Computed example of a mutant assay.
Amino acid sequence: MAWSTQQVAELAETTVKAVRYYHKIGLLDVPERTANGYKQYEVSHLVRLLQIKRLSDLGVPLSEVASMGHAGEDPDEAIRVLDRELEATVARISRVRAELAVILRHRAPAYVPPSFAPVARNLSDRQRSLLMVYSTVLSEKSVQEFRELLSEPDDTDEEFEALPPDADDAAIDRLAARMLPVVRRARERHPWSKAPAADAPRGAKHAEYTMAEAMVQLYNPAQLCVLKRLNALLQEEASGASDDAP
Rank of each mutant, 00 (worst) to 15 (best):
T136S: 12
E159M: 15
P31C: 04
R92W: 10
V183Q: 15
L180F: 10
L218K: 01
Q6H: 03
T89L: 14
V19R: 08
L227Q: 13
V96M: 14
F160V: 00
W3L: 05
S63P: 08
V30S: 06
R20W: 01
Y219S: 08
R20H: 03
P165M: 02
Q6E: 12
R184F: 04
H70T: 15
R95K: 14
A120V: 00
N36F: 03
E152W: 03
R229C: 12
I52G: 01
V137W: 00
A162H: 04
L175C: 13
R128S: 09
F146S: 12
I172C: 00
G26P: 02
E64G: 07
A162Y: 11
L28S: 01
S193N: 13
E236R: 14
D83L: 15
R97E: 04
M1I: 11
S239R: 04
L150Y: 07
E159L: 15
R20G: 00
A2D: 11
R107N: 06
W3K: 09
P196D: 04
R121C: 02
T210Q: 05
K194C: 14
P109I: 01
L218A: 07
L49P: 02
P164R: 08
R92M: 08
V16Y: 01
V182C: 05
Q40K: 12
S142Q: 10
L163N: 05
V47F: 06
S129Y: 15
V216Y: 14
D155K: 14
L27P: 00
V137H: 00
V133H: 05
L233D: 07
L224H: 06
S142G: 10
A245W: 13
V226I: 01
L82H: 07
M68Q: 04
A78S: 15
L50M: 14
R184I: 14
L224T: 01
P164W: 05
R33E: 00
